[in-house]
């Protein structure tokens, strides 16, 4: 059976999914990236290789997320696409007719406006990451509650307190202040959910026409408190798709399927790629005052990719070697 592999390597999590030709998700993995994208992807692929049933064959692979280029160098990919496109593709596929996608991940949040199944507009947080998953994680840790309990506790709130949500550092000091004043935990957590939603709608969603059906995805969609706050603020029902936490990977797999639709052979290097020894290094180029930090990926003794240089002379030098071979 032909399968499609989708890999989404983000700042906080690495998601890998395997999908069959009818686009059913067969396997799905959610790993913590922990700043080591290469090792994490390799570990994930090894794990996946062990779970393959006889006769399953990887027809095509796609990557997305901030480490999409790095990942495609390592495993070979037919489609290398940014996370906005990947999320939009996955949302329109899983929730047909969706008109708005709210996505909150570890360090970024975005809104995608879809009309007739096509992306019509999008926005992504630019200068501030207040209200993303990392902040919720941090606050849950500070309050000593598991992140899984955050949402359910917030739902118990009777009168949510108002928390300053513009800046995550000030939100934290405001929360501490409310705790010192004696408000209970559930009211504070619900207040925090409302503040984050307010911040999201004012910054990322500014000026966007939010029409239903509204899809909420990304790791933060697991938080029922945020979902409720969105529903109250938008006054529409918010849907959370089944694979909300791996939507980027689902989109990557769908795009990979599209990339080989005309029968092209796959660029996927196979699961052996997970065994090979890849090393990432970097050096500062001193040829001009820009002092670019050039990143170098080596497989064994051979440099297979370089990037990070503004003038692209290092990046091109690898390509030149390749074409010479």
């Amino acid at each position: 059976m032909n399968c499609f592999l989708g890999v989404d390597v983000g700042s906080v999590s690495t998601n890998i999914i395997l999908m069959d030709e009818e686009t059913n998700v067969l396997e799905s993995m959610y790993l913590r990236t922990q700043g080591k994208p290469i090792v994490t992807v390799q570990r994930g692929l090894q794990d996946l290789a062990g779970r393959l049933k006889p006769g399953w064959h990887i027809r095509a692979a796609g990557t997305t997320g901030s480490a999409r280029h790095l990942t495609s160098v390592i495993m070979g990919a037919d489609s290398v696409k940014n996370e906005i496109t990947a999320h939009a593709v996955a949302a329109t596929h899983l929730v047909p007719g969706a008109q708005t996608v709210l996505e909150i991940g570890g360090q970024d949040s975005k809104i995608i406006v879809l009309r007739n199944g096509v992306v019509a507009d999008f926005a992504m947080n630019t200068v501030c990451a207040a209200g993303t998953g990392s902040f919720l994680d941090q606050q849950a840790a500070r309050l000593n509650i598991p992140i899984e309990d955050f949402g359910p506790i917030a739902l118990e709130a009777k009168s949510p307190v108002r928390i300053a949500g513009r800046c995550s550092v000030f939100a934290e000091s405001d929360m501490i202040h409310k705790q010192q004043m004696g408000h209970n935990l559930s009211d504070i957590l619900a207040g925090l959910c409302e503040a984050l939603v307010r911040n999201y709608l004012n910054n990322v969603g500014k000026g966007k026409e939010i029409l239903g059906p509204v899809v909420f995805q990304g790791g933060v969609a697991a938080n029922v408190g945020i979902k409720k706050a969105f529903e109250e603020a938008l006054e529409v029902e918010v849907q959370i798709p089944k694979h909300y936490d791996v939507m980027g990977a689902v989109g990557a797999a769908l795009l990979a399927r599209e990339a080989v639709a005309k029968g092209q052979p796959s660029k996927f290097k196979g699961f052996e790629a997970a065994q090979e020894d890849y090393r990432a290094g970097s050096f500062e180029c001193g040829d001009c005052p820009n002092l670019c930090e050039v990143i170098e990926i080596a497989a064994g003794e051979k440099t297979i990719a370089r990037w990070g240089d503004r003038c692209s002379k290092w990046a091109n030098s690898v390509m030149a070697e390749e074409s010479a071979v």
Binding site: K81, N82, I84, T92, L114, V118, A120, F122, M124, A261
Partner: peptide, 25 residues
């Protein structure tokens, strides 16, 4: 970050120009 946004914007325009569905399924 700038690259990601530009890429996504170009995808949006391409799909709009082609009048393509989110993905052909």
């Amino acid at each position: 970050g700038v690259m990601t946004r530009l890429e996504a914007f170009v995808d949006l325009l391409t799909r709009k120009a082609e009048g393509k569905e989110g993905v052909n399924l």
